[in-house]
Simulated scan of single mutants.
Amino acid sequence: MHAAGQSGAHKIVWLRHNRIDLALHLLRVVADPATRPLLLLHGLGDASPTSAPHWVEQWPGTIAALDFTGHGASTVPRSGGYSPELLMSDADHALAALTDDDPQQSITVLGRGLGAYVALQLAGARASQIRGAILTDGPGLAGGPTGPSSQSYFALPSTGAAPDPYALVELGRDLRPTDYAVSFVQLAIAGSGIDSPISVASSFRPKWLDAVADIPGVADTTVADALAAYAAI
């Protein structure tokens, strides 16, 4: 993205993802190649802030926030079909938009709750471009059973408004086991080139996040310390 100087005015960039329009909120734009963008990913049922939260104000570069599919200002699709992988592809579109001026540029990502799970996936899938993923408290993806369970079928009312009730149901009871999350940590450690590519700054830790925090090479820290550490890399 092109920017001149520094701007603190809120702006939305629309990203077309198949039939979905994703809202990428630019909370602060800094045109300094020595800095790195910070991407914020919200929790389940939440939406992006419209100004930079006070706890990221010290970040030296651009600060952006993405509304996932079915959340915030992004498109609400019909009849559900949500998965963390779908949201990871949303975040991957945001990554591409934030680095379109320089495909070799890296970003740091901070996710809350469900956004933390997506941040972890993105850090593993795009290990060479993600210079630190910070996983923090927030709503959603507390985890689910590790094996098959009874099936349920449902049809929810279509309001067309965010947050999509299908997202709340489908993502709130996701079945992925803890070792699936751990695999993304291993990918991040192998491909990032930094000592601690994942930082856990969360008080509440569902099973998947507890397993992630126990892995050597994952930092157990605070949001402020994690941001300072990744800004300095």
Rank of each mutant, 00 (worst) to 15 (best):
H2K: 09
A3F: 13
A3N: 04
G5T: 01
S7M: 06
H10K: 07
I12P: 03
L15A: 11
I20W: 05
L24T: 13
L27I: 06
L27Q: 08
R28K: 14
V29L: 15
V30F: 02
P33Q: 04
L39F: 06
L40N: 08
L40K: 03
L41I: 12
H42E: 04
H42L: 09
G45Y: 01
D46S: 15
A47V: 04
A52Y: 03
W55V: 05
W55F: 15
V56H: 03
V56Y: 02
Q58S: 15
W59P: 10
P60E: 01
G61S: 08
I63K: 02
A64M: 12
A64S: 11
A65C: 14
F68Y: 13
H71R: 00
A73Y: 11
G80Q: 08
G80N: 07
G81T: 11
Y82F: 14
E85R: 14
L86S: 04
L87D: 12
L87F: 15
M88H: 12
A91V: 10
D92K: 10
H93A: 12
A94P: 05
A97W: 09
L98F: 06
L98S: 01
L98D: 05
D100N: 12
P103F: 01
P103E: 08
Q104C: 02
I107D: 09
G111F: 02
G113L: 02
Y117D: 00
V118Q: 11
V118F: 10
A119Q: 06
L120Y: 10
L120K: 11
Q121E: 13
L122K: 05
L122T: 13
G124L: 00
R126C: 06
A127W: 05
S128T: 14
S128P: 00
R131I: 06
I134V: 15
I134Y: 03
D137T: 12
G140K: 07
L141H: 12
T146Y: 06
P148H: 07
S150C: 05
S150G: 12
Y153A: 11
Y153L: 10
A155L: 13
L156R: 09
L156G: 10
P157Q: 03
P157E: 06
S158Q: 12
S158R: 14
G160M: 12
A162G: 09
P163D: 01
D164W: 03
A167E: 03
L168F: 04
V169R: 15
L171I: 13
L171S: 11
G172M: 08
D174T: 13
P177R: 01
P177W: 03
P177N: 07
V182R: 14
V182D: 06
S183V: 08
S183N: 08
L187T: 09
L187S: 14
S192V: 09
S192D: 15
G193E: 05
G193Y: 12
I194Y: 06
D195E: 15
D195S: 13
P197R: 01
P197C: 01
S199R: 00
S199K: 00
V200K: 09
V200P: 11
A201W: 08
F204W: 10
W208H: 15
D210L: 10
A211T: 09
V212L: 05
V212P: 11
V212H: 04
I215P: 03
G217F: 02
D220Q: 15
V223K: 00
A224E: 15
A224G: 10
A226W: 05
A229K: 03
Y230A: 13
A231K: 00
I233C: 04
